[in-house]
Lab assay of single mutants.
Amino acid sequence: NKFNKEMRNAYWEILLLPNLNEQQKRAFIRSLYDDPSQSANLLAEAKKLNDAQA
C-alpha cells in the first residue's frame, strides 16, 4: 500500500529531525496516523519547522 510506505518513511524522517522536541514529533506523528494521505505534506511541514528551529 502506497500510503503505508509513505507514512512509514515520513514517520522515521520526522523521528530523526534533530531540532524538533518530543512534543512536536508526537503531534506530527499523531497527524500522520489520523490522515496517512497527508504524509508528504506533514513531512514538509515538519522539515520546515525543523529548519526554523535550527
Rank of each mutant, 00 (worst) to 15 (best):
N21L: 12
A10E: 01
R8T: 05
A10G: 02
N50K: 01
E45H: 04
A27K: 11
E13F: 11
Y11M: 14
S37H: 08
E6D: 07
K5L: 00
D34H: 14
N1L: 02
E13Q: 13
S39D: 01
N19F: 11
R30G: 07
Y11P: 00
L16Y: 14
L20N: 00
E13T: 13
E45D: 12
A46Q: 00
K2D: 15
E6T: 03
L49K: 11
A10Q: 01
L20H: 00
K25G: 01
K47R: 10
F28S: 07
K5E: 15
K47Q: 07
N21P: 06
N21I: 09
A27F: 11
K47F: 07
I29T: 08
L15Y: 04
F3M: 15
P36M: 03
F3P: 15
R30D: 04
A27P: 03
L32M: 04
A27Y: 08
P36Q: 04
W12N: 10
K25W: 02
L20V: 13
L16W: 08
Q53T: 12
S31N: 12
R26M: 06
F3G: 15
K48V: 10
L32V: 03
A44F: 14
L42N: 05
L20T: 01
P18M: 05
S37R: 06
L16F: 13
N19L: 08
L49A: 14
A27N: 14
P36F: 05
Y33V: 05
Q23R: 08
D34F: 09
A52Q: 09
N19P: 00
E45A: 10
Q24T: 05
L16D: 08
D34R: 08
N1I: 03
N9Q: 15
D34Y: 09
K5V: 01
A46G: 05
M7D: 02
K48N: 12
F3T: 15
K5W: 01
Y11E: 11
L17D: 02
E13W: 08
D51H: 15
N19E: 12
N50E: 05
A54P: 08
M7T: 08
E6W: 00
E45K: 07
L15M: 06
S39R: 13
L49I: 08
A44I: 10
L49S: 07
F3K: 15
N4H: 13
Y33H: 10
A52L: 08
K5N: 02
L43F: 03
A54D: 14
Q23T: 10
N21Y: 13
R30W: 11
W12R: 12
E45S: 08
A10S: 11
K48L: 11
I14A: 01
A10K: 02
P18S: 05
A44Q: 11
S37T: 13
D51M: 11
S37N: 05
L43H: 03
L49P: 00
A27R: 09
D35G: 09
N4T: 09
D51N: 10
S39Q: 04
Q23P: 11
L32D: 00
N41V: 13
K2A: 13
Y33R: 02
Q38Y: 09
D34S: 13
L17F: 06
L42V: 10
N1S: 02
N50R: 02
L16M: 13
K25M: 03
R26D: 05
M7L: 10
A54Y: 04
F28D: 00
M7E: 07
E6A: 04
K48E: 07
P36I: 03
L17E: 02
R8W: 15
Q53E: 08
R26I: 12
D51W: 11
L32Y: 00
N9L: 15
L49Q: 13
K25R: 11
Y11Q: 03
A40T: 06
S37E: 09
M7R: 00
K2P: 05
F3L: 15
W12E: 04
A46K: 00
F28T: 10
Q38G: 05
Q53H: 13
L49W: 12
A54K: 09
E13A: 13
N41F: 14
L15G: 03
N41S: 09
E45Y: 08
L15E: 02
N50P: 01
Q38D: 08
E6N: 02
I14F: 02
N1H: 04
S37Y: 09
N50G: 07
S39N: 05
A44E: 06
A44T: 04
Q53A: 10
I29Q: 03
K47V: 07
D35W: 06
K2I: 15
E22Q: 11
A10V: 08
N9P: 01
E13P: 01
Y11T: 04
A54W: 05
F28Q: 03
R30H: 09
Q23G: 10
K48P: 01
P36V: 04
L16V: 06
N21Q: 14
L32H: 01
A10H: 03
A10T: 06
N4S: 04
N1G: 12
E6P: 01
P18F: 03
A52K: 10
N41D: 08
Y11W: 07
D34T: 05
Y33N: 02
Y33Q: 02
L43M: 06
M7P: 00
Y33S: 01
R8F: 15
S37V: 06
A46S: 10
A27E: 10
L49F: 09
L49V: 06
Y11L: 09
S39V: 13
K25I: 07
A54N: 14
N1F: 00
R26Q: 07
I29Y: 04
D51F: 10
D35S: 06
L20M: 06
L16T: 06
L43R: 14
Q23L: 05
N4E: 15
D34P: 04
N19V: 06
Q38W: 10
A40F: 07
L42I: 07
R8E: 15
M7W: 15
L15T: 06
A46Y: 02
R8D: 04
N41E: 05
A27H: 09
L20F: 02
L32K: 00
N19Q: 10
E22H: 14
E6F: 01
L17R: 02
A54V: 13
N9S: 05
A52P: 09
L49R: 06
A10P: 00
K47S: 05
S39W: 15
Q38K: 12
L42F: 09
K47M: 04
S39E: 00
N4F: 11
I29E: 02
L17P: 00
Q24I: 10
Q38T: 13
N1D: 15
A44G: 07
Y33W: 12
Q53Y: 10
S39Y: 15
E45M: 12
R30V: 08
P18H: 11
N19S: 10
E6M: 03
I14E: 00
Q38I: 09
L32I: 04
A44P: 03
N19G: 09
P36G: 09
P18L: 05
R30Y: 13
L42K: 06
N21M: 14
E6S: 02
L15R: 10
Y33M: 09
L15D: 02
L49M: 09
Q38L: 08
A10D: 01
R8H: 12
M7Y: 02
K2S: 15
E22V: 13
K48D: 08
A10Y: 01
L20A: 01
Y11I: 13
I14T: 02
K25Q: 02
A44K: 10
N9G: 05
K47W: 05
L42S: 04
E45F: 05
L43V: 07
Q23N: 07
S37K: 14
Q24D: 08
K48T: 08
L49H: 11
